[in-house]
């Protein structure tokens, strides 16, 4: 089994994007993704794409690495494009491929969807590539904090995310070990129909769940031993700081977004 989860993994280096306040980055990526989903105009997409390209350049993350991480999603983009182009009916037939007719509407929608998806993926991976998981959870905790009053456990959500991120490599490692151990006992994981394959997962999943529960239990004890009691009077070593560069970045971002939206209305 091969586990490839390089997509969106934090790439530690120094760049303007890395230094920005994660709260700014999180808000910007989210609003950017929403805007890209709402517009349907070629100029708007051109500006968005140019902006993303500039951001990639500014992030100091090697483009090759970014693209490699997206390999698995590339299939999804191609799939979306194909489905759209073949399945959307339309009157204005551009050309025929045997029995399949491709209309101008279909091509238009397919291109639009592909552009949206690609820009969304680039925007979100830029966020995760330039902000450490801890920074991201801190940002999420910050934005959820106002909802604490209505019962949203913002601190608990952030803590859960941190612990999940912490244990992903450990559990992948563990999964790999269990697979090997069961293979050594003659488990056949590769052949047979869907039912047989699903059944073959039991000897893998049961031990994995059991060990996760045990880990969770031990971790809870360890956290208690280190005086954890939720977010009661909890402080943070690393404070998020909103500085001048964050202000400039925010202003530039708002300007660009305004251009994109205006392009949508004008053209």
């Amino acid at each position: 089994m091969n586990f490839n989860i390089t997509i969106g993994q934090y790439y530690p280096t120094d760049s303007i994007l890395h230094r920005l306040d994660p709260r700014v980055k999180l808000a910007a990526s989210l609003s950017f993704i929403i805007i890209v989903c709402l517009i349907d105009n070629g100029f708007g997409y051109a500006i968005s794409a140019a902006f993303i390209a500039a951001a990639v350049w500014a992030s100091n993350v090697p483009v090759k690495l970014m693209l490699r991480g997206m390999k698995s999603i590339f299939f999804f983009i191609v799939f979306t494009f194909t489905v759209n182009i073949f399945l959307i009916p339309g009157g204005n037939i551009l050309f025929n491929l045997g029995p399949v007719k491709i209309s101008a509407e279909a091509l238009n929608t397919a291109l639009l969807m592909t552009a949206r998806l690609s820009i969304m993926i680039f925007a979100s991976s830029l966020l995760t590539l330039t902000s450490s998981p801890i920074q991201l959870t801190d940002a999420i905790e910050y934005y959820l904090a106002p909802f604490k009053k209505i019962g949203v456990p913002s601190h608990q959500i952030a803590m859960m995310m941190t612990i999940t991120l912490r244990f992903i490599p450990t559990l992948i490692d563990e999964l790999d070990k269990i697979v090997r151990a069961q293979k050594a006992r003659g488990a056949d994981l590769d052949t047979g129909g869907a039912f047989k394959k699903a059944k073959a997962l039991i000897p893998i999943l049961v031990p994995l769940f059991l060990s996760s529960f045990r880990r969770a239990d031990e971790l809870a004890t360890a956290m208690e031993a280190r005086c954890y009691r939720g977010d009661i009077e909890r402080t943070k070593m690393k404070q998020m700081k909103f500085g001048m560069q964050d202000l400039y970045a925010g202003i530039i971002f708002i300007c660009i977004c305004s251009c994109i939206i205006m392009a949508n209305f004008i053209f």
Binding site: K177, I178, A181, Q182, P203, P207, L210
Partner: peptide, 11 residues
Amino acid sequence: LVFQYPEAQLF
């Protein structure tokens, strides 16, 4: 082949 901590594969 008996791996390290083989009790982790009991299911």
